[in-house]
């Protein structure tokens, strides 16, 4: 499922990668950047947290002409007045202008590294609205955003994740070198797919996924092996019926199996229903123990 995130064709996709300090989601983000570059899409990165050379490293060098880094790392708040892009410029119109300055490919992917930085300098409500405008604006095919879960209140995280169509939460796994990704993807039709995957990303950005060994599947397999052992195989007496024997058995009239007529007569309630009135007296032999002790009544 992780590898299929980029494949959607409908415009306005919004993917949030949620990480914590324990495990960084930036390498997964780089994986998606690399995939988009290989597909021949222009990638615009709004970089707040890492310098350009760090993000560029190990990307496919043949496609780097499609890679555009909008540097807000050196001067994110515009203190030295040298940077062309600061966090204050983040708005639907601002970003769209930025994309149109260097428009080469037919489709473009916007990568925000990271949303956490923007949310800390803007009203979260405004950020949500601007992101939605960007999605509907049609200038970008997909938006990827990195969100650090441990920096925000639950409400902000919820509001941003509610907006996204795909949310990937990465956490360190128990198994060495494998990390866990919880992906929930919402299709336009309203169908929701959720999956938990173990994955590793190597230095040269190749992704290998191992689906979590399903516990319920294991239990079913166990049951299956048990049922293969036939208890009737090694018996000293016969438990099977031949065809003739079965026919003979079915012919036997069992007690309390009545004809249809009698059944219906018994099932139909009589007009007047009788009731037995009985008052026990001192001479009655009353058994204290429940006579139907072995029945589940």
């Amino acid at each position: 499922m992780l590898s299929e995130v980029l494949q959607g064709t409908e415009p306005g996709g919004f993917v949030i990668i949620r990480d914590t300090a324990c495990y960084s989601g930036r390498r997964l983000l780089k994986y998606y950047i690399n995939c988009a570059l290989k597909r021949g899409e222009a990638v615009h990165v709004l970089g707040f947290e890492v310098p350009e050379h760090e993000l560029c490293a190990k990307l496919d060098s043949s496609c780097l002409n499609l890679f555009h880094f909008h540097n807000a790392y050196t001067d994110p708040l515009g203190w030295t007045k040298q940077s062309s892009f600061t966090v204050q410029h983040f708005s639907a119109t601002g970003v769209t202008q930025l994309l149109q300055e260097t428009q080469h490919a037919k489709t473009s992917v916007l990568v925000i590294d990271s949303l956490s930085f923007i949310v800390r300098h803007h009203d979260p409500v405004v950020v949500c609205q601007e992101l939605q405008k960007l999605r509907k604006g049609g200038s970008v095919r997909m938006i990827f955003g990195l969100l650090h879960m441990d920096l925000h209140q639950q409400g902000v995280l919820g509001a941003l994740s509610h907006l996204a169509c795909t949310v990937i939460s990465v956490t360190p796994g128990n198994i060495a070198r494998y990390a866990v990704a919880n992906t929930s993807q919402r299709k336009k039709s309203g169908k929701v797919m959720q999956k938990e995957e173990f994955f590793t990303l190597t230095e040269d950005l190749t992704l290998s996924i191992e689906t979590k060994p399903n516990q319920s599947g294991k239990a079913q397999a166990d049951l299956h092996t048990e049922s293969e052992v036939d208890p009737m195989s090694n018996l000293t007496f016969n438990l099977r019926l031949s065809e003739v024997e079965r026919e003979a058995k079915e012919k036997v009239a069992l007690p309390f199996v009545f004809s249809e007529k009698k059944k219906s007569a018994l099932l139909s309630q009589g007009r007047g229903s009788g009731r037995i009135m009985y008052e026990p007296d001192a001479n009655d032999d009353f058994d204290e123990e429940d006579p139907d002790d072995d029945l589940d009544v």
């Binding site: 979260p124 949500c128 409400g155």
Partner: peptide, 12 residues
């Protein structure tokens, strides 16, 4: 009540 209505009920 979602943020897209410009509502900060989820946040504040």
């Amino acid at each position: 009540g979602s943020a897209l209505w410009g509502d900060d009920v989820c946040v504040s």
